[in-house]
């Protein structure tokens, strides 16, 4: 016959196993559910509840963290300042040289009826929170449906593509970074105009796959969006591994994101772009994500 303590251990073990089983069932349903699933409704609801607390914590912590960062980086700031001053001089010279070229490009684009990413309507937002673990590749921004944000829009900063909007409430939204394994972006190599798909790997460089490549790619080649799902010409990153195609094989390489995703504080959401490819249920390429866990 069980003693009272044994009975209690058994009860706790049964509860533990039941909760693990419930977690397993929830995960299975979430993987198989679509974009408008109960899971996403719960995510939006939870985020709405947590947002005021997160904003308050962010508001309180920002000055302290800024001060700590400043003190910690004091030594490196001086050399960084010198380096930036040199860089500014170089860029000023480059700007003068490219002004004439820009005008020519603008005229050509007008003639061809092309859209220019810089001319698209954007909404500036501030990142106030991120995911809850090192395996999360999401950020929360302080703009939502009331500001014209909808799921699927491209998110950029001054360096290039940051990610895409994947969850929207009235005043806030969640963005999924390009490093997320569930995100793929249709891209073009700027120097060769060949297209491919860039996918996240959770962290570090992105994976580039090109299915019909005829020309080799070199380290440093710029990778930009191809315009199918996101506005064309947004910088995604640069090639870090040179590669050439073999007949019948996919050309694979790596792309270093242009944006330092761990340091982004402000982003712009491109609200004035209509994608060529509609966002498919279940998602596949070009910025869509598979619905499970999105």
């Amino acid at each position: 016959m069980f003693s009272q303590s044994n009975r209690r251990v058994t009860r706790v073990t049964v509860l533990f196993l039941s909760l693990v089983a419930i977690g397993f069932i929830i995960a299975t349903f979430d993987v198989r559910s679509d974009q408008d699933s109960v899971g996403n409704v719960l995510r939006e609801g939870t985020q709405s509840v947590f947002t005021p607390f997160q904003k308050a914590a962010d508001w309180v912590a920002s000055p302290v963290i800024g001060f700590v960062d400043g003190v910690a980086n004091l030594a490196s700031l001086r050399s960084e300042n010198d380096r930036l001053a040199d860089r500014v001089r170089e860029l000023e010279a480059e700007v003068q040289a490219t002004t004439a070229l820009e005008e020519q490009v603008r005229q050509l684009e007008l003639i061809n009826g092309l859209e220019v990413a810089g001319d698209l309507t954007t909404v500036t937002a501030r990142i106030y929170a991120s995911g809850s673990s090192p395996f999360d590749n999401v950020r929360y921004i302080d703009k939502g449906a009331e500001d014209g944000i909808v799921v699927g829009q491209a998110v950029v900063d001054e360096d290039g593509l940051v990610g895409r909007v994947d969850l929207v409430s009235a005043k806030d939204a969640r963005i999924r970074l390009i490093t997320d394994p569930l995100v793929s972006v249709g891209v073009r190599i700027q120097s060769t105009n060949e297209t491919g798909i860039v996918s996240g790997r959770g962290d570090g460089p992105l994976r580039l796959e090109m299915f019909r490549a005829t020309q080799p790619i070199s380290v440093g080649d710029l990778v930009v969006t191809d315009g199918s799902r996101f506005p064309p010409g947004l910088v995604v990153g640069s090639i870090t591994v040179a590669a050439s195609s073999e007949v019948g094989f996919v050309l694979r390489s790596e792309v270093e994101p242009a944006t330092n995703l761990s340091q982004v504080d402000y982003v712009k959401i491109v609200v004035g772009f209509t994608p060529i490819d509609p966002l498919l249920d279940g998602g596949s390429d070009d910025g869509s994500t598979s619905s499970g866990g999105s």
Binding site: G23, A27, L42, S132, S133, F135, D136, G292
Partner: peptide
Amino acid sequence: EYHVMIGFTAGLLMDLMGSGTLGLWAMSLT
């Protein structure tokens, strides 16, 4: 009993605030 349930709840909240599949952190924290 309460501790295991709080673990599950905390994990579920982490799942809801994160980018992964729902239920994974719930299982882990349980």
